[in-house]
């Protein structure tokens, strides 16, 4: 244990936050949503987004909250990290979430939202040439995740499958 008090910075649903040591980032109860962490190992700065939907829907009068969508949230996350002095070429990503919580027979869009979210996140990261260092996605379980910018370790807690670090 370090002597410094670890402060947990919460990231809500459709929310973004940035942290550096001794703070850690945390988001709770990811289901079909995806948690995206972008970090700079050299500067020990990290940002986390908790997205709900793949992309902003222009027809449905989407709202202003950039953190809600995979594409806009990642852009916003990069922008905030660069404001903190991070160089975009050093950014790496870890992602978790995108579960299918309920196994319906109908393959409607809403029911497959988890896998659509994962796909959108990966496409966006690829476009920005940000490598995904580790991932824990899909499945049927909810996840609570914690990222420590000091170590770049992502801790994932589930109800049925215990904890793991990636």
């Amino acid at each position: 244990m370090s002597s410094e008090v670890v402060q947990v910075i919460k990231v809500g649903i459709a929310d973004i936050n940035v942290a550096c040591p001794p703070s850690i980032l945390r988001t709770s109860g990811l289901g079909s949503c995806v948690g995206i962490i972008l970090y700079d190992r050299m500067l020990s700065i990290a940002g986390m987004a908790h997205i709900m939907l793949p992309s902003a829907n222009v027809e449905k009068k989407s709202t202003e909250n950039l953190a809600k969508y995979a594409d806009t949230a990642i852009d916003e996350l990069v922008r905030r990290l660069i404001n903190k002095g991070v160089s975009s070429y050093r950014l790496k990503a870890k992602i978790a979430g995108g579960a299918q919580m309920f196994q319906f027979n109908t393959a409607s869009d809403t029911m497959r939202i988890g896998s659509r979210n994962i796909k959108a996140v990966k496409e966006k990261l690829q476009n920005l040439k940000i490598p995904i260092e580790a991932e824990d996605v899909g499945g049927k379980n909810g996840r609570t995740i914690e990222f420590d910018p000091a170590t770049s370790v992502l801790r994932i807690r589930t109800v049925h499958k215990g904890e793991k670090m990636i």
Binding site: A14, G29, L53, S62, T63, G142
Partner: peptide, 27 residues
């Protein structure tokens, strides 16, 4: 009603499913 589905998990992971439709137009 669809066939009801049973799940035991974190409430955030479960209830967020009910917010997907709404989240497309509202915060």
């Amino acid at each position: 009603p669809s066939v009801p589905l049973l799940a035991m998990d974190m409430v955030g992971a479960i209830l967020s499913h009910g917010l997907i439709e709404l989240s497309q137009i509202s915060d």
